[in-house]
Design a protein around this nucleic acid. Structure first.
Lengths: 206, 206
DNA sequence: TTTCGATGTATCGGTCCGATACATCGGTCA
DNA sequence: TGACCGATGTATCGGACCGATACATCGAAA
């Protein structure tokens, strides 16, 4: 599967970790999770689910209404549940911290969304890698602007500036996050398992 | 051709408007133009150029070194030049101001990049449409956040917040642009041709 | 002289998704 | 009552799209 598939796979496993779900709900939660960031379509979701079934990361489940097994006819709903293998695979994917994670915007977004389940060390490595990447992009864009400054009209320049400031803003965001991470790492010196601070961003809220 | 093709087509025509170019340079200018926004690949550029050739928007040109026609062997460089039909088509595309323009991020970006060549009326319509679109997205995201606030962990929430603020920032940017446009429209009441203010964003610089 | 990065043209395999089809459900209004 | 409608729900497909790649030339450095 392609570059994206890994992303979807991770996101699906992460959501199913919380509770079993059917496709429709999965898609909604998926897109809510990433907010304004990204939208997945059924055209990728269902093939991905199918693939994950064959690999054994997830299994289909009858609906949870065990009270009425075959009563009242048919159910079309298909509920997906994560398997033990799936959980292993999820943790495996989560512990990745190579370039793939921070080079690609989508990869970073999804990985970040599950930071609460990620080891502190990995979190920091990803955040720093991401920052490095954005700063490279920044240099590149800045150079490009100064190189072609006189050729650009006002609107084009405005667009460039806006894009530049967006990236600068993101770097500032990362700086804050990294500082928080470091502060909390210093406070709790050695290894902290993710479970110790379930779902809290270290540092003061904003 | 798909949704994207229109975007690339517009961008290419806009750049060739300034001066003839070969593919490699075209791609560089293209990606510099859109800054941090987007990157086109040869895999889309060359097919697009081929398509535009058959439609007659552009023509191939021998290299400009007319001094040595067949001297010193071969030249692989292919220079593309816009035709009269191409210029017409460019203006036609530029005068579009429907939903396609502001719904899609890429469409908006490219159209904005050529605002200096766009009629003031169209500019305003696009900017306002874009703002409306982003505000819808904002409402949607905000609702989604409050709806699922208690379910989210700190990192997920942080991600949502960051995304939200990005969009809010973009809306503020659009507000400023719209104000500037209105002010300059009020100053020069009736029709102003794009050429009257070549390449200046109306209003004071930032 | 070789090597290397930049310039330059071009294609293809395979991922991805917008559009679409189809079905059921709960509510609402005449 | 029933007919309508929007939300819920599963699923597929055509073809746009692009990362990776191949190949060639050039100027300059080592």
């Amino acid at each position: 599967m392609g570059k994206r598939a890994g992303v979807l796979e991770l996101a699906v496993l992460g959501l199913l970790q919380e509770s079993p779900m059917h496709g429709y709900e999965l898609r909604k939660r998926l897109n809510a999770l990433l907010g304004a960031f990204r939208a997945f379509s059924y055209g990728s979701l269902y093939p991905c689910l199918k693939d994950m079934l064959t690999r054994g990361w997830i299994v289909e489940d009858g609906p949870a209404d065990a009270g009425a097994p075959a009563l009242s006819g048919k159910r079309a709903k298909i509920v997906y549940r994560i398997t033990a293998d799936g959980k292993d695979h999820f943790q495996e994917l989560l512990s990745e911290s190579g370039p793939q994670v921070w080079e690609d915007d989508d990869h970073f977004g999804v990985h970040f969304a599950f930071f609460a389940k990620t080891e502190a060390e990995v979190r920091l490595r990803i955040l720093e890698g991401r920052r490095r990447r954005l700063e490279e992009r920044l240099d590149h864009v800045r150079a490009s602007i100064t190189r072609t400054r006189e050729r650009l009209d006002g609107y084009t320049l405005e667009l460039q500036k806006h894009g530049l400031e967006s990236v600068e803003r993101e770097v500032r965001w990362l700086n804050e996050l990294i500082d928080s991470e470091r502060a909390s790492a210093a406070a709790r010196p050695v290894h902290q398992t993710p479970q110790e601070i379930p779902g809290d961003v270290p540092g003061s809220p904003s």
